[in-house]
Design a protein around this nucleic acid. Sequence first.
RNA 1: GGAGAGGUGGCAGAGUGGUCGAAUGCGCCCGACUUGAAAUCGGGUGUCCCCAAAGGACCGAGGGUUCGAAUCCCUCCCUCUCCGCCA
Length: 425
Amino acid sequence: MLDLRQIREQPETVQAALQQRGAYDLAPLLSLDQQQRQLETRRSQLQARSNEIGKRVGQAIKAGSGASDPAIVALKTEGNDIKAELQTLEPEERDIKTQIEAFLLTLPNLPSDSTPVGASADDNIEVRRWGEAYRPQSAVKPHWEIGEILGILDFKRAAEKIAQSRFVVLMGAGAALERALISFMLDRHTRAGYQEILPPYLINSAALTASGQLPKFAEESFQCRHDDLWLTPTAEVPLTNLHRDDILNADQLPLRYCAYTPCFRREAGSYGKDTRGLIRLHQFNKVEMYHFTHPDQSFIALENLVQDAEDILQQLQLPYRVLALCTGDLGFSSSKTYDLEVWMPSSDSYREISSCSNCLDFQARRANIRFKASGQKGTQYLHTLNGSGLAIGRTMAAILENYQQANGAVRVPEVLQPYLGREYL
RNA sequence: GGAGAGGUGGCAGAGUGGUCGAAUGCGCCCGACUUGAAAUCGGGUGUCCCCAAAGGACCGAGGGUUCGAAUCCCUCCCUCUCCGCCA
């Protein structure tokens, strides 16, 4: 959520920044804000008078006046008049406040100055590459083919017998590899100082609103019919809400968490895209990293976060590149995002495998997460960052292709061999 | 799911209609004493709206009664205990 005070004080600046992300008109918001502030002034004047009347009546009664004393009757009458006026004023103000809140919740974060300006993914900037793209003599089979040949991936049973399309059943070495990847990543991050979290996978709507998934992306999430609960689309949601409404001490920061969760996404509107394989499923596994930082530290933290994700790819010896997303491709809550894209030999292209974002105080404001410096008055919103470290299914896909031998065998990356106890799948 | 108890400041915990935004203790901050520390003593210490002051709001959430509600009434949410069911 953006800062209403900032919008009020620098409407042109905010408007211009939003323009880079799409069509947003702040005018209605500014007008609502003005109305609300007028109503608030009037209301608080009435309340002040009402408080005074209450006090006076109390004092008079204490001093021995009877209830029928004319002075008391007059005060009571005035009190009733004020109450009547407040009873029309209050709902009006509340209604406007609700509208303001609803409006603010639909505005995306402002892009950082360091985010490249651009309209679409085509304008993202490649920052660096690591590793050499794998281009063997013989054609590499796409991961879904090799997975089915090896008997470790089964899309057909998932779709026809268990769930529907865009689900997968992992079997044998496939299931074990998935589990190994999760363990490997969590082990790596906890050694690097992240605290491991295993959160609920069902999330209430207040929590989804706090992290920015609601109200705009309701159609992207799976919802439980009988409860106010949704299947988590990413561990970012529960991790953000770990500290909802908290006031932390400055010396507790930064807080760094990692969590494995399955992620559930409806993928509405992506019909026909990535219909085969592990790239785009309704359910996938992911290890997520999350930082709560002091505002001065968040951009340094973002660089560190990206490196933590890159380290996984490097240890797995998977070639990748790093992109700085442009303003037009930025996620709703993010101010600056780096995407990591892993090399996929079968399609001769790089595919997103991690997204690392600095949300600044955008989520902290929605989730009301603040910190207090000891000895200082007042509180400040902290900054939040999130990054995949990594998407497990896509990592598996990358391994099945990049580690594919000419004879169709798939070698197990060296760092995973202790987890799997085997050299080939 | 059934029965009961309860939700108050960082924590613990008083407060059942009128200077209660809230006693007290712990914690924390400042100061005194001390070579230093502990102990002790004195003072301070919630959040939000508001440019600020003034003022206002907040005792789980929402509504009601009243001149006046943390306190009374209604609805909802949550927590705890016991029972049932269950991995």
